[in-house]
Nucleic acid binder design. Structure first.
Lengths: 173, 173
DNA sequence: ACACTACTATTTGGGGCCAAACGATTCACC
DNA sequence: GGTGAATCGTTTGGCCCCAAATAGTAGTGT
């Protein structure tokens, strides 16, 4: 939830009191509210920062870059897996691939054994872009986690992985 | 970054090795990469979960709910602050407010002292919706953090707050 | 009064996003 | 071998998202 938690410490305390007051009758778990809110706020802020400072100079959208990244790490993949891996729906992937193909960074290739399916592979230009953007992207990642100790950064990754898996389990049931 | 980090532990280790191999020449900070990646993956997964299970039954979009929430916590607000508080651009807020007004959940009201500005307030129906949705939303928040101890949940919120503030400072410079 | 500047919400254009509906292909079973 | 169910990628419709351009309003200095 927005800046309900965030910003300076003063505003933070003020927001917490406001929520306590305005939501007093609702019996809320303020601890998990704060944690989950901060996940969203952090993700939005860091993502916007990345899009402006790293992706935009290359005219890449967020999802386009994620798809390129997945293809570079895992090699050529079929459409369905690619969508899952990139965390977007199949319908969304179609548009992203259209854009990527138009820019010559990836290509669709028919699967010979099954004409329903479609493979996707990086072009040389696509490979170059990933290897160019990835270090810049990672430099910013290091920046935003720069005020954490190495141990805290590892803890953050670990705690998030737990939440992530819990949420995934909730959906697969 | 997608499921590069996530899923089961086996896949996680496999992904880490893959990244190490494929990106070996690039000198990446894998610790911050994992932490930031998990922020994005967690945010996406939890958000999709919330939209499907909590918001959709009320025909509410994510941003629409955030705006309603902010209005409920802070009371009537002017457009500009509202956008900042909700973490969206001014242009985006216009569309969200159009939708919210059409559904009778919020209203724009002219600011008498300055005809450029526009105030926004919840309607009674809007208040009812927030007070209905918020507890359901919070129940899911408690669910996804359910595998964390109270102390871990607090730690998660704290570490994210540090990253968030670092990222915000990076942008305001 | 007048221009100049600064600020407001809004519109525009190009994408991204999902769910649901669709058409094509494959598979299973009879 | 033909019929029905399952599984692909794609299309459609509605909303969200941002940046940049726009129009209207307010303040500032002359």
């Amino acid at each position: 939830m927005p800046s309900a938690f965030a910003a300076g410490d003063d505003e933070l305390v003020e927001a917490e009191h406001l929520i306590r007051d305005r939501m007093s009758g609702l019996d809320l778990d303020l601890l998990s509210l704060a944690a989950v809110s901060n996940v969203f706020r952090t993700a939005t802020t860091v993502r916007n920062h990345m899009e402006r400072n790293v992706l935009k100079p290359h005219s890449l959208s967020w999802s386009a870059f994620v798809v390129l990244f997945v293809l570079h790490i895992w090699g050529a993949k079929e459409s369905r897996e690619l969508a899952t891996e990139a965390g977007i729906s199949g319908g969304t992937l179609v548009g992203v691939l259209d854009t990527l193909e138009r820019k010559g960074l990836a290509v669709r290739q028919p699967v010979l054994t099954d004409r329903r399916r479609v493979g996707v592979a990086l072009t040389d230009a696509g490979t170059t872009v990933v290897e160019d953007v990835m270090p810049a992207f990672n430099r910013e990642e290091a920046q935003v986690t720069g005020d954490l100790t190495a141990e805290e950064t590892a803890t953050l990754a670990r705690l998030l992985r737990i939440v992530l898996r819990t949420a995934e389990d909730l959906d697969n049931r």
